[in-house]
Amino acid sequence: MAAGGDHGSPDSYRSPLASRYASPEMCFVFSDRYKFRTWRQLWLWLAEAEQTLGLPITDEQIQEMKSNLENIDFKMAAEEEKRLRHDVMAHVHTFGHCCPKAAGIIHLGATSCYVGDNTDLIILRNALDLLLPKLARVISRLADFAKERASLPTLGFTHFQPAQLTTVGKRCCLWIQDLCMDLQNLKRVRDDLRFRGVKGTTGTQASFLQLFEGDDHKVEQLDKMVTEKAGFKRAFIITGQTYTRKVDIEVLSVLASLGASVHKICTDIRLLANLKEMEEPFEKQQIGSSAMPYKRNPMRSERCCSLARHLMTLVMDPLQTASVQWFERTLDDSANRRICLAEAFLTADTILNTLQNISEGLVVYPKVIERRIRQELPFMATENIIMAMVKAGGSRQDCHEKIRVLSQQAASVVKQEGGDNDLIERIQVDAYFSPIHSQLDHLLDPSSFTGRASQQVQRFLEEEVYPLLKPYESVMKVKAELCL
């Protein structure tokens, strides 16, 4: 049975990233139509530049190519590739079939990587351009969430054990800070992308030097003109047959890092959902379990974690691919890159769409948070109580021993009897502590235990987050809708 299948058929496997999760716009960027249309555009740009620099290419040939950029006979191309065992030459023939007058000058002087690699770089750039505003929107939604809850005390956790208090907004800023680093890295790697350009079979530009009869300047002009037509500021000066596969490492490393950030955020949300302090959106008709109707599973956060793990592992592909590119190139890269580049971007696209949807509907339960604080705060307040007693004339050592005994009794009630923490009640009825009984409410005010959390939130948002989001103001209103 021949390899390949009808990918629109229910009898043929289709990647869930495309069929179930990723956005239509990201799927289109990695589609065959987008790819092969870009090949034709690159052939047109090459012909236009070659004509401008004096090669015998007519206006009629150029116009014929322009008129057929979208006229792609995919069936013919597939048949040609089956016959020739070469995808680029299959599309040269297919393009030439609908451009008979231009057929002889299509791909003039070029090698397969002229269309293959340059198209990949265009796709990487455009895919990054799709991700950047999506990530900015996630940051914006979380920034709104953090600002609104900047002063809401909550129990902090280290080692997932109760620690000092923080605020809900401050905790959210930990998430935002990681995503801001990801946004900066995505922008950097996007701006650092260079075009492969017009380089020939081993990167020496020998074929173009021959076409222009040894004119170095025209060869350099050709490279520059096509690079500018493709919208790049610069091209690699040095290439082998391909652009260095280190570029793929750079791009997928940034995406993998984004995956790590999203995994951490969504894990926190899942843990908070278990504590009943916070939940992701839950639709009115949504079913959490087929057997347990009360369940409210954090399905979206779980999906993000599941896909983020996949995204983090994909960076190993370009690392290994770059390491086995012998001399000017081997074909070890080809099949692998067809999979890992598309999957990385479709996965990143999915987790950003999902995280935006989550961040637009996060639900906080202040009463649950308050109750958990009441359970733990008495123990945390013991040092403040000791200091207040010393100020009232008591002995630190005597007070410490009193607190120690009462704390152990209260802990026994919590752990052995399943009761509430009654340390404060014990202190309130103990005559030894009568000098500070009137101060206990103040000493137990949760806001006095959150330090500068709310001020940190305000400063972080104003100095770091809002300036970073400013270039994306025009796209901030787009909502994230999930079908599944």
Rank of each mutant, 00 (worst) to 15 (best):
L121H: 04
S306L: 01
R85A: 01
L258E: 03
R194I: 05
P471K: 15
Q241M: 04
F327R: 03
I72P: 07
M181L: 11
V429L: 13
M292W: 01
E250L: 11
F160D: 03
I106S: 05
D11A: 08
Q205K: 02
E280S: 01
Y243L: 09
L44S: 06
I249R: 01
Q210M: 10
M380N: 08
M476N: 15
Y466M: 15
D332Y: 00
F95M: 09
T354D: 05
P318L: 03
K264Q: 01
F195H: 03
A77C: 09
P153S: 06
G231E: 07
A348N: 05
M26K: 00
A344R: 04
H93W: 13
V324I: 07
S19W: 13
S395K: 09
D333G: 01
R371L: 02
L311P: 00
S19E: 14
R85C: 10
K402C: 02
S289R: 00
K276N: 06
R190L: 10
Y21D: 00
I436C: 05
D120W: 06
F282Y: 14
C180T: 14
L44Q: 15
N336M: 07
T166G: 09
Y13D: 05
Q41S: 08
R459Q: 14
T166S: 12
S359D: 12
S261G: 11
E417P: 02
E360D: 14
T450Q: 05
T239S: 13
Q286H: 02
C27V: 15
H91A: 14
P100D: 11
A308C: 14
F36E: 15
E81I: 00
D248R: 04
A49V: 07
A143Q: 04
Q210P: 09
G419M: 15
K284I: 15
K264G: 04
A206N: 10
K75R: 09
V465C: 14
L44A: 12
L307V: 15
K101S: 11
P378F: 03
L272F: 06
K264T: 02
Q221H: 10
D144S: 15
G156L: 00
F345H: 08
E80G: 09
I139H: 02
E70C: 07
S67R: 13
T354Q: 13
F327S: 06
S334D: 05
A2G: 06
Q286L: 01
K264W: 02
L252I: 13
L484A: 15
L132E: 11
T119S: 13
I436K: 03
F208H: 08
I238T: 07
Q356V: 06
A322V: 14
K295N: 04
V262A: 15
S448T: 11
R20A: 00
N297G: 01
L108C: 15
L252E: 03
G116L: 07
E220F: 12
F195A: 06
T239G: 02
N185G: 11
R141E: 15
P24R: 14
L443Y: 05
R33A: 10
D6T: 13
T267E: 03
Y34E: 06
L155I: 05
K276S: 05
H437Y: 08
E376L: 02
N421R: 04
M387I: 05
G240L: 00
H93K: 14
A22D: 06
E370V: 07
R309M: 09
C340S: 11
K224E: 10
E343I: 04
L271Y: 04
K246Q: 02
L440M: 08
Q41M: 15
T204L: 04
A381K: 06
R137W: 06
G361Y: 14
T119Y: 14
R33M: 12
L42S: 04
P153Q: 00
W45D: 14
S438G: 09
L211W: 06
E383C: 05
A322H: 10
E48Q: 08
F236N: 06
I427R: 04
I238D: 00
Q184S: 12
D6W: 08
I176R: 00
T330C: 15
S67I: 15
V368Q: 05
N118C: 13
M65T: 08
R125G: 07
S359Y: 11
L142V: 08
F327M: 11
S474L: 15
A273C: 13
V251L: 15
L423R: 02
F195G: 07
E213A: 12
R296D: 03
P298A: 12
N336A: 12
Q286A: 03
